[in-house]
């Protein structure tokens, strides 16, 4: 771009009859400098949100905020933190395991019609609204199983929501292992298993990992599936079949309380702050790994 700006030496050579061309070059220049300014429309909300969430959460953020349980109109976030951690751990284990298996199979073994169907299903599943997944969890895991509102029901529902992201990224990462690698391995006499475990897996692994992190970030920030399945309790979950609290729930339940009534809104902002920090760290991790991975792949090609 910088090289192109002293450009248009042509416009200095234009005669008075070249008004149309002058106009076209003028439009081009306006667009070149004006269009990137639209980024302000995205950056202003981003930084406004980050600023206000920090400004509302941090002044009263102490160790007690993390270490105590919610009580009445105040308290801390210990139970929601442990609840979110538990939910995400189980949900990541389920969706990670199933998603990686399914993605690997789709990319490496599945006959074309099966693969097409599986990818279509994965894409459609990614588009199912969180609230609909929540109702699914309510009917299947809360009512049908007679568990009632439980941590396990919440985690499984969450894993259904996270599954397509792991699956898609895993499918994509195994599919983008360069063909030469496969041919070279097989030509050298590798069995399919050796190829998969020793050649394809190491190449695809970092990218698969980004998919898992991404799914974790998405699952962490979800509220709707849990509202319908996990119930609520102000003390840490005592087992998989007991109710649990979670960070997004703190925000959703308390955002409307007036400031005069305890510090519930502040608590909600503190939960939101924790969520944003965790999610941003996960997202940055994803971008870093993805960047490394891309460079590694490029090294493979050159």
């Amino acid at each position: 771009m910088a090289a192109a700006t002293p450009s248009n030496p042509a416009s200095d050579l234009l005669g008075p009859a070249d008004g149309r061309l002058r106009y076209r070059l003028w439009v081009d220049r306006v667009v070149r400098w004006g269009l990137p300014l639209t980024f302000l429309l995205v950056l202003v909300p981003l930084f406004d949100l980050l600023y206000w969430v920090s400004a509302k959460a941090l002044p009263t953020f102490t160790w007690a905020t993390i270490s105590t349980n919610p009580v009445g109109f105040g308290g801390g976030l210990w139970a929601p933190i442990t609840g979110t951690f538990l939910l995400i751990t189980i949900a990541t284990a389920i969706s990670g395991g199933l998603g990686i298996l399914a993605g690997m199979y789709t990319a490496e073994f599945a006959p074309p019609p099966v693969a097409r169907l599986a990818r279509l299903a994965g894409n459609l599943l990614a588009g199912v609204p969180a609230i609909v997944v929540g109702y699914f969890g309510y009917f299947l895991l809360v009512l049908y199983t007679h568990w009632g509102f439980t941590t396990l029901a919440g985690a499984i529902t969450l894993s259904v929501f996270m599954l397509p992201y792991v699956y898609r990224v895993c499918d994509l990462s195994f599919s983008s292992v360069p063909r030469d690698q496969r041919e070279a391995a097989l030509a050298a006499g590798a069995t399919p298993r050796q190829y998969l475990l020793r050649v394809a897996f190491p190449i695809a692994f970092p990218s698969v990992l980004t998919g898992v992190f991404l799914a974790m970030a998405i699952g962490l920030g979800e509220t709707a599936p849990l509202v319908l399945t996990a119930g609520w309790s102000n003390s840490p979950s005592t087992g998989l079949l007991s109710t649990t609290s979670y960070l997004t729930g703190v925000v959703y339940q308390n955002y409307q309380f007036p400031d005069t009534l305890g510090h519930l809104v502040t608590l909600a902002f503190q939960a939101a702050f924790l969520l944003v920090v965790i999610v941003l760290v996960l997202n940055i991790l994803v971008q870093v790994i993805a960047g490394r991975y891309r460079r590694r792949l490029q090294g493979l090609f050159s």
């Binding site: 206000w52 920030g221 509220t223 997004t248 959703y252 955002y255 939101a272 969520l275």
Partner: peptide, 21 residues
């Protein structure tokens, strides 16, 4: 990268930012 960060922010955080701020 900054634009992508917007995609990662939980919807409930957008909600409280919208409602309170």
């Amino acid at each position: 990268t900054l634009t992508n960060l917007l995609a990662g922010i939980p919807s409930v955080v957008y909600g409280i930012w919208g409602y309170v701020v």
